[in-house]
Amino acid sequence: MKEWNRTSVEEFILLGITDLPQLQVFLFITFLMFYLFCFVGNLSIVAVVIVERSLHTPMYFFLGNLSFLDFFYASTTVPKMLAGLLMEDKVISFRGCIAQLHVFHFLGSTEAMLLTSMSYDRYVAICNPLRYHVLMSKATCIQLASACWFIGYFYSLTHTILTSRLPFCRMNRVTHFYCDIKPLLRLACTDTSLNESLVSIVSGFVALATFFFIVISYLFIGTHILNIRSSQGRQKAISTCTSHFTVVLLYYGTAFCTYLRPATLDSLEQDRMTAILFTVITPAMNPFIYALRNIDVKTALQKFFFGERFLKNYFIQL
């Protein structure tokens, strides 16, 4: 961080999503709605997981962590993007840019590890239910979640330090709507091959390793489900995994497309469009993916917002 005085660039200009005025108002309203959904949905899940005792289980402990993370993940980039669309406020200070880069990758890598922990939780619940409460004790869950946040922080810190030490003495126009590693590397006036290799190798290792463990978990889960004779039991096992598997596909599909290919000008343009999915849309959709397919979450949300009397009347009508 002491190397900041080496750069002649004191601020960056985020080019945003589009320069077309006729699209900016439409995109502002659209992305604002998604951000509000993200705000209400994720914080509602965090609240019910804390308040509702029936959700004090390992599965919902990790879901609460994921929702908490998703809200701040979106908040790292979306408010600045909205300001750029509405007020043309596209300037960000050098320190602010580096801080945004660090928080974004910190939360993004933590999410990958949380999704891996959640897949292990589902594996134990389905394949080894008799030992579930022993293997997924409260202490174990806290340790797993803490490890996810801890490793994510130091993974991001590596990229942050290396990027902050680069000299930026040419253009300061970032081809993105937030500060990310690849667009910043193209602006540095020095050889960035080491940084580019680290992005591919380290990010690739984290993404592939966590995805590998998730795939292995689901292979064991799938094998176990095929051996369940009861169709009702098989359906119940599948329903507990569908939401998580959907979120995994959304997350890793966009992550692989963005960080495992070289930073050409064309790829940066594609990354800018792809980033909308995992910074705006996915964090807003995750609460609905989990809530709409999970009766416990739906019941807890209804109880939280409408009270127990509403639930009693609701079930009486059914």
Rank of each mutant, 00 (worst) to 15 (best):
E3N: 14
R6I: 09
I13T: 05
I13C: 05
L14T: 13
L15G: 09
G16F: 03
D19Q: 11
D19Y: 11
Q22G: 13
T30Q: 12
M33I: 15
M33P: 06
M33C: 13
F34L: 09
L36P: 07
F37L: 14
G41Y: 00
S44C: 15
I45C: 08
A47C: 13
V48K: 00
V48N: 02
V48Q: 02
I50D: 04
I50V: 15
H56W: 15
H56C: 06
T57V: 14
L63N: 04
L69E: 01
T77C: 09
L82E: 03
G84Q: 02
L86I: 01
M87L: 06
R95Q: 10
R95D: 12
G96H: 04
C97G: 10
I98E: 06
A99R: 04
F104E: 03
H105M: 11
L107R: 02
T110P: 01
E111D: 04
A112Y: 01
A112L: 05
S117A: 11
M118V: 07
S119C: 06
Y123I: 03
A125F: 03
I126C: 04
C127S: 10
N128H: 14
N128Y: 14
L135A: 13
M136Q: 14
C141Y: 05
S146A: 13
I151Q: 00
G152Y: 02
G152L: 04
Y153C: 06
Y153R: 01
F154L: 05
L162Y: 13
L162E: 12
T163E: 05
F168E: 00
R170N: 10
V174A: 01
Y178M: 07
R186E: 15
R186Y: 08
L187H: 12
D191N: 15
N195D: 13
V199P: 02
I201V: 12
V206T: 12
L208S: 13
L208D: 02
A209E: 14
T210Q: 02
T210N: 13
F212W: 08
F213P: 03
S217W: 07
S217A: 12
S217T: 11
L219E: 09
L219N: 06
F220S: 09
T223G: 13
T223Q: 14
R229F: 10
R229L: 09
S231E: 12
Q232M: 11
Q232R: 12
G233A: 01
R234W: 07
A237H: 04
T240R: 03
T242A: 12
S243D: 11
H244N: 07
T246W: 05
V247N: 00
V247W: 06
Y251K: 00
G253I: 02
T254F: 14
Y259T: 04
T264M: 00
L265K: 10
L265G: 08
A275W: 06
I276Q: 01
L277S: 15
T279Y: 11
I281C: 03
A284Q: 00
M285C: 11
M285D: 04
I289V: 14
N294Q: 13
D296R: 05
V297I: 15
T299F: 00
A300R: 02
F304M: 09
F306L: 05
G307Q: 07
Y314V: 07
Y314R: 07
Q317R: 11
Q317D: 11
